[in-house]
Design a protein around this nucleic acid. Structure first.
Lengths: 112, 112
DNA sequence: TGAACCTATGAGCAATGGTTCATATGTATT
DNA sequence: AATACATATGAACCATTGCTCATAGGTTCA
């Protein structure tokens, strides 16, 4: 019997034309990796409500200052949070609205 | 000098009321972890265009059948893809529209 | 300048993750 | 039943990751 599942050549061509560059896909995957950790998600939930300094986030989440600082660095590198310095204290806040949208879509998917 | 950065009690209360349960946050993080790998993202891009069987996805992406099958299992567990069997062949396709939305938001964030 | 405080960072360790390899399961055909 | 083909899966291996610990960098105030 003939193999009837030969993929359509047009579809193959379209997929190849639409598939982003590897470099772009790495960046994309790296962005999602940032959301793939509960500590970082908790930090984002905190920042949904208010800007906050490192030590307060740490206390609120019951974690060490070091652990939070390390994760804020990751969030900062992905441009998901920004910060401002006020004396000794550094206040972190959300960088833009995509954070909220991405989280909301994830929540929607989970809650179905 | 008095510490002027004492976090507002109302904000603390609000954050605690809004913060989801740990179990939920684990599920959420697990969902994003799925998007945090280029192989899985590539598979999703393929399925944006058409349902496809395991061996064709493998060939299209230049990877082994085993590697693709393992990753499809992950995507299946997260309910991001569904499948139908036709004889020896198993066709995979996207489960719902959240996949597209989540990817699109990520792309938007990257491209800024 | 020295002390106190807040934050950042590098090294090390345990846990997790993605691929390969070998093999099992499932289906169709003869 | 036997063979061939498509897919699934478990174990092993190497790479990555999140935390801790110790410590460095920066800022303020006396």
């Amino acid at each position: 019997m003939v193999n009837e599942k030969i993929p359509d050549k047009d579809i193959i061509a379209k997929i190849k034309s639409i598939m982003p560059e590897d470099e772009f896909l790495y960046d994309l995957a790296d962005l999602y990796k940032v959301f793939g950790d509960t500590t970082r998600i908790k930090i984002l939930y905190v920042l949904f409500e208010s800007e906050m300094c490192v030590c307060d986030i740490a206390q609120l989440l019951g974690m060490t200052q070091s652990a939070i600082s390390h994760q804020l660095k990751v969030l900062k590198q992905s441009k998901l949070v920004k910060y401002r310095r006020e004396g000794k204290t550094v206040f972190y806040s959300l960088a833009d609205d995509h954070v909220r949208t991405i989280i909301d879509q994830g929540v929607e998917h989970i809650e179905e």
